[in-house]
């Protein structure tokens, strides 16, 4: 095969789908063929059956909705706080010097380890779930946004100065629009991570949500339900990713033109 040679769109789709087919076929072969113990791994058919029963009888869609709400709630809170701080750090070097060391440190604090503390502070209600996602996302967004903003093209800034821009004008009408697509891309990336945090938050001290269903199923050895829950998360993640990409294309046509 020639390196870096592009693949046709049709072949790309076929290859992409065929891996899913292979994966599911392998899963069906080891489970239905009796190569693994059914207690530990459900086969694809019983997974679908369990999933259907969850949705119809156990009102699992309510859990799905509550989890989606938590992810977006926590994510929006983190974005509203982090994006302005990140822009300020990238634009004004003293602000960066002041905050960067702390944020870099805080970024490595595992959000999941905060759960016991957050439960003490905020109880086991919705606020605690939102805070886990907030803590997990906010420092990441701040740092990535600050780096992107800090690498704004200097020649564009200089051009704006020679056209009469003030310092504030540079930030508002050069630095912010120049980095808007990259910031949106950063948010899309971090939203993916937020899905991990929400499940962890729901595994501990929770009575609803996809994560709660999963931990609940574990005690009943309902591996079909667990796998169904995991797949649902993957599908929602994929959908929100598509939606985010479409929104970015709509908002920033100039970056793709």
């Amino acid at each position: 095969m020639r390196p870096l040679h592009p693949v046709s769109p049709g072949l790309r789709t076929v290859l992409g789908i065929s891996f899913f087919v292979l994966f599911i076929a392998f899963w069906a072969w080891i489970t239905l063929g009796g190569h693994v113990n059914r207690i530990f791994l459900a086969d694809p058919l019983s997974m679908l059956r369990d999933g259907w029963r969850l949705l119809v009888e156990d009102r699992f869609w309510l859990d799905i909705l509550i989890t989606i709400w938590r992810v977006f709630g926590g994510f929006v809170m983190a974005s509203v706080v982090a994006v302005p701080i990140g822009i300020a750090m990238g634009a004004w070097k003293p602000v960066e010097a002041f905050l960067e060391p702390f944020v870099s440190f805080a970024r490595y604090l595992p959000a999941s380890a905060f759960i016991p503390l957050l439960i003490l502070w905020a109880g086991i209600g919705e606020l605690e779930k939102l805070l886990v996602i907030f803590v997990g996302s906010v420092f990441q967004i701040i740092l990535i946004v600050a780096v992107k903003v800090g690498s704004t093209r200097r020649d564009l800034v200089e051009a704006a100065y020679t056209l009469g821009s003030t310092n504030n004008g540079i930030v508002k009408r050069v630095i912010m629009p120049a980095n808007a697509p990259e910031i949106a891309e950063t948010l899309r990336l971090v939203l993916g991570w937020a899905w991990t945090y929400v499940i962890v938050a729901e595994l501990i001290g929770s009575s609803s949500g996809i994560g709660y269903m999963i931990i609940n199923s574990q005690s009943r050895l309902a591996t079909g339900q667990i796998i169904f829950g995991i797949i649902v998360i993957g599908l929602i993640g994929l959908l929100s990713d598509f939606a985010f990409k479409a929104l970015n294309r709509l908002l920033f046509p100039w970056s793709l033109a």
């Binding site: 093209r153 020649d155 564009l156 200089e158 051009a159 704006a160 020679t162 056209l163 009469g164 821009s165 003030t166 004008g169 009408r173 050069v174 629009p177 120049a178 808007a180 920033f252 100039w254 970056s255």
Partner: peptide, 25 residues
């Protein structure tokens, strides 16, 4: 007024908006 060797049009603005930039400021 300055014109640079590198292309320094603001990529998020159209041709007309680029030309209007200084007047807007």
């Amino acid at each position: 007024g300055m014109v640079f060797q590198s292309y320094t049009l603001f990529p998020w603005l159209t041709v007309a908006e680029n030309i209007a930039f200084g007047l807007r400021e």
